[in-house]
């Protein structure tokens, strides 16, 4: 338990120390690179904005991610169970995934003018469903036929086989993908908040820091984003422990 908390905390302190040292040794002014000691005043000065905008970023990311989980799982089931669907959808999916999402921000901003919450959630969703769909699809299509046969030979329906075997067996892959997707969803949210700012979210706070030449604020936003990302990631890890803990082998 000591190691689980103390070691990560120590590594963060070392990181901050090296960062401070780097800025101090180079004699950089804080408009070139802010140092960790500049951050607490920035956080304190804008504490209300951090809470409000941090919450805006967080809920829109989580809603987008939830949509991605539902849609990605359904899509994964389709490409996992049907060869035809797999052959038909893979090129489209890969193509869609390859399009840099920054280029889509103006597109959806024009499509749904003024719907900033909707646009942000949509982007978080679009950027994060792909890994979920692919991993669920691969998990299902690589299910060994014997697993299916032990229940099919008893006359079990496809739905029963999915619920009792395919779904739980795919959970470890699903959670692996969800960790990637959670990080991606954050990128999507911030992309919209920065490229198409409507004064909402940490991305907008970052943008206003940039406009006003408030560099400590910009760095403070980056740190806040990192903290939110860590929180979301460990929320997924927590769920994984509950639902797919069996996949973890005892150490040694």
């Amino acid at each position: 338990m000591f190691n689980k908390v103390a070691v990560p905390v120590m590594s963060i302190l070392v990181f901050l120390g090296l960062w401070e040292l780097l800025v101090w040794a180079n004699g950089w002014p804080n408009y070139k690179m802010a140092s960790p000691s500049d951050l607490p005043p920035a956080f304190w000065q804008y504490r209300d904005l951090f809470l409000i905008m941090g919450w805006q970023t967080l809920w829109r990311t989580v809603v987008g991610l939830l949509l991605a989980v539902v849609f990605g799982t359904l899509l994964g089931m389709i490409i996992g169970f049907s060869r035809v669907a797999r052959d038909a959808l893979y090129p489209l999916l890969v193509g869609f995934n390859a399009v840099p999402k920054a280029t889509l921000v103006p597109v959806i901003a024009l499509l749904f003018i003024g719907q900033h919450d909707f646009n942000t959630v949509l982007m978080a969703f679009m950027i994060s469903f792909f890994p979920i769909a692919v991993s669920v699809g691969i998990g299902l299509s690589t299910l060994e036929p014997e697993y299916r046969d032990i229940l099919r030979a008893l006359g079990a329906s496809n739905f029963t086989i999915f619920r009792k075997i395919a779904l739980p067996k795919t959970l470890p892959e699903f959670f692996g993908a969800l960790k990637v997707a959670a990080t991606l969803a954050f990128i999507g949210t911030n992309l919209v908040e920065i490229v198409s700012p409507h004064g909402r979210g940490l991305g907008a706070l970052f943008k206003s820091g940039e406009t006003n030449g408030n560099y400590p604020l910009m760095f403070a936003v980056l740190i806040a984003l990192a903290v939110l990302g860590i929180v979301l990631y460990y929320a997924v890890v927590f769920l994984e422990k509950i639902f797919a803990g069996w996949a973890e082998r005892a150490p040694g």
Binding site: D149, A153, G155, I165, L171, W246
Partner: peptide, 19 residues
């Protein structure tokens, strides 16, 4: 004509459910 409940199967791979 199809699967029936009165059959049991065992394979080389024991296919036990890990969870």
């Amino acid at each position: 004509k199809g699967p029936r409940k009165t059959v049991g199967m065992a394979f080389q791979n024991p296919v036990l459910l890990e969870w």
